[in-house]
Simulated assay, not measured.
Amino acid sequence: MSRSQAESKAREEILLLILKRRLVPGQRITEKSLAELCEVSRTPVRTALRELIAEGILERDEPKGYVIPPLTPPDMLQIFQIRQELEGMAAALAAESPEPCYSASLRQIEALQEEEKRIYRNWNTENFTRNSQEFHHCICRMSGNPYLEKYILQSYWRSQIYVFFFDAFFLHGFDSATDPEPVYGYSFAEHNEILEALRNRDGQRARNAMEKHVLSTYKWLTNSRR
């Protein structure tokens, strides 16, 4: 395994441990313990930890430790507020992006939507996480603004910690025998709204649809916590 592959594996494994709630907010973790859990050496873990700190997923806990920041209502509100503004701007710019970036990115987003159908049907939280991340990041890249990409990446992953620990889909999944239309969910429908706005090259509609999507995620999570 190459160095870059080991670093990528370490990062993915740490995120998976958080997704599965084997690492929880406030828990102190070390390079050594993570290297053992991820089955890689400490060097790629150290690189992965630096990336996760930059993205707001982890914080340093001296000496030589790390911690998932505690989850609080004020922090949750603030991170979703900034996501709403930044991603709304990115969606508006994406709708007006020049060729050939526009067509290539649109095809990728359409493929992600088709994949999302299958993911919901199979109740796969890991694949859903990867798909949703790529959907949002593809739109961000489509905007053509590297500063937006940088700050959206950080706010997106920080908000995902709240998703992993409060979203009913991640906690319980859904029951196809009792839940009405469970396979698509609100997220899929709202992704479709964003996609349609991008297809029509309607920047304002794309902005509104993205802002609505981020806000409804926040509202869904706050309701799930009650």
Results as ranks from 00 to 15, higher is better:
residue 182 P to Q: 03
residue 116 E to T: 01
residue 50 R to N: 12
residue 84 Q to C: 07
residue 92 A to M: 15
residue 139 I to R: 02
residue 57 I to W: 09
residue 87 E to P: 07
residue 26 G to L: 00
residue 200 N to E: 10
residue 225 R to Y: 11
residue 189 A to C: 07
residue 154 Q to W: 04
residue 162 Y to H: 08
residue 165 F to Q: 07
residue 39 E to P: 03
residue 51 E to N: 04
residue 122 N to W: 08
residue 64 K to L: 13
residue 103 S to A: 10
residue 172 H to S: 06
residue 42 R to I: 08
residue 65 G to Y: 08
residue 145 N to R: 01
residue 17 L to C: 10
residue 37 L to V: 04
residue 61 D to Q: 09
residue 209 A to P: 05
residue 111 A to M: 06
residue 38 C to E: 00
residue 27 Q to W: 04
residue 16 L to Y: 11
residue 216 S to I: 07
residue 149 E to Y: 13
residue 157 W to N: 10
residue 139 I to G: 04
residue 85 E to M: 09
residue 127 N to I: 00
residue 73 P to R: 10
residue 132 S to E: 13
residue 3 R to P: 01
residue 102 Y to T: 00
residue 61 D to S: 15
residue 226 R to S: 14
residue 57 I to N: 14
residue 54 A to R: 11
residue 145 N to K: 01
residue 179 D to Q: 00
residue 40 V to H: 10
residue 9 K to N: 04
residue 108 Q to W: 14
residue 1 M to T: 07
residue 67 V to P: 05
residue 153 L to A: 13
residue 24 V to F: 09
residue 90 A to P: 07
residue 101 C to G: 02
residue 128 F to C: 03
residue 162 Y to K: 02
residue 161 I to L: 15
residue 207 R to P: 03
residue 12 E to C: 04
residue 136 H to D: 09
residue 115 E to C: 06
residue 89 M to H: 08
residue 136 H to Y: 13
residue 119 I to P: 06
residue 8 S to E: 12
residue 5 Q to F: 05
residue 192 N to F: 06
residue 184 Y to K: 11
residue 55 E to G: 08
residue 197 A to F: 05
residue 154 Q to V: 02
residue 160 Q to R: 15
residue 83 R to I: 00
residue 91 A to M: 06
residue 137 H to R: 15
residue 178 T to K: 13
residue 191 H to W: 00
residue 141 R to F: 12
residue 218 Y to Q: 09
residue 14 I to G: 05
residue 155 S to W: 02
residue 158 R to W: 03
residue 75 D to W: 00
residue 31 E to K: 10
residue 21 R to E: 13
residue 151 Y to F: 12
residue 133 Q to H: 14
residue 28 R to Q: 03
residue 199 R to K: 12
residue 97 S to W: 05
residue 177 A to M: 04
residue 77 L to A: 15
residue 160 Q to L: 13
residue 41 S to P: 07
residue 209 A to E: 02
residue 11 R to L: 14
residue 66 Y to I: 12
residue 40 V to R: 11
residue 127 N to E: 15
residue 37 L to C: 06
residue 55 E to W: 14
residue 198 L to K: 06
residue 23 L to T: 09
